[in-house]
């Protein structure tokens, strides 16, 4: 048991996972608050196709990942709230994008015949945080720190713009630019989370800690900090669980912890609401 913690792959996973979780907690809080969880869902589709396209083209997986998700984030920002297409259009487009991802997956797995590439699709879809090398972990940490700093930098005006867009715009807050920049940050976070838990599960890492934090407190900045803390706790809990029980894949363990923590907040809330509110 103790031997696992001294293994380099576990240390890399904890190091990268911690910073990725902080970034996911911070960005996820704003995603939930701005009711843009569906954008996260869309980003998860795009992340898969981007990563597979890069692999099929012979580039680094992360290049395609970041290019696709940040590009998609900017595209959503460009479409804006007014030009938002309805969910039938979104569903059609994303079914097609996923189909394209399946195409690239086959191109990639059949182009290098004989070599052990069959797991590439699984890796991108469901992540493999224990497979991160030292330099990969370092890059992931650096990008996560950058995302966190940028999010904290724009946190105050972004919160204002989220809670009351009209007043914020009247006060001279660049609402449109903020929304644009935030979606680009969300894209970068999605690409980061894909390396940890995979593109299909990143939605849970974005939504669960933020949803739990919003249930637990009404104060925005406390909820923001709580969301990041819960995300880190989910990540550590998942990694520990996976180290304890090696048959559980880390992505599942992380999602299970996140889901359990979120479910626990539903048990806490009613008892707190039942108490008379102090006047």
């Amino acid at each position: 048991m103790s031997s696992v913690f001294s293994q380099p792959f576990f240390q890399h996973a904890v190091l990268a996972g911690t910073f990725i979780a902080v970034a996911c907690g911070l960005v996820g809080y704003f995603l939930v608050l701005r009711a843009q969880i569906f954008a996260g869902d869309a980003l998860s589709h795009v992340a898969f196709t981007g990563a597979m396209a890069a692999l099929a083209g012979g580039y680094d997986l992360r290049l395609g990942l970041f290019a696709a998700t940040i590009g998609a984030g900017l595209l959503f920002g460009g479409l804006g709230r007014r030009g938002r297409p309805d969910d039938v259009v979104i569903g059609s487009v994303f079914a097609w994008i996923l189909g394209l991802g399946a195409f690239f997956l086959t191109v990639y797995t059949t182009s290098r015949s004989g070599s052990d590439q069959g797991g590439a699709g699984t890796t991108v879809l469901f992540g493999s945080i224990f497979g991160l090398h030292g330099d990969q972990a370092a890059v992931a940490v650096a990008i996560a720190v950058l995302v966190c700093l940028l999010t904290l930098l724009i946190a105050r005006p972004l919160l204002f713009a989220t809670l009351d867009e009209a007043v914020a715009a009247a006060r001279g807050v660049p609402v449109r630019l903020l929304g644009f920049g935030f979606l680009a940050l969300a894209g970068a976070t999605a690409a980061e989370a894909t390396q940890a838990v995979g593109s299909l599960l990143l939605l849970g890492l974005l939504a669960a800690p933020a949803g739990a934090a919003i249930r637990l407190t009404d104060r925005p900045f406390r909820a923001l900090a709580l969301s990041a803390a819960l995300a880190v706790a989910d990540m550590w809990g998942g990694l520990l669980l996976s180290a304890e029980r090696p048959e559980l894949p880390p992505s599942f363990a992380i999602m299970a912890t996140a889901g359990a923590v979120y479910a626990a907040t539903f048990l806490i809330r009613p008892s707190r609401a039942a108490q008379p509110a102090p006047a």
């Binding site: 299909l200 919003i214 889901g259």
Partner: peptide
């Protein structure tokens, strides 16, 4: 509201994670 969409997102991701567990 925002909260229900967070619930749905979590439930979907958890269902997919369970599928991944069974597969592995």
């Amino acid at each position: 509201g925002a909260e229900e969409s967070a619930v749905t997102g979590t439930v979907q991701a958890f269902a997919l994670a369970c599928g991944f567990l069974f597969i592995s």
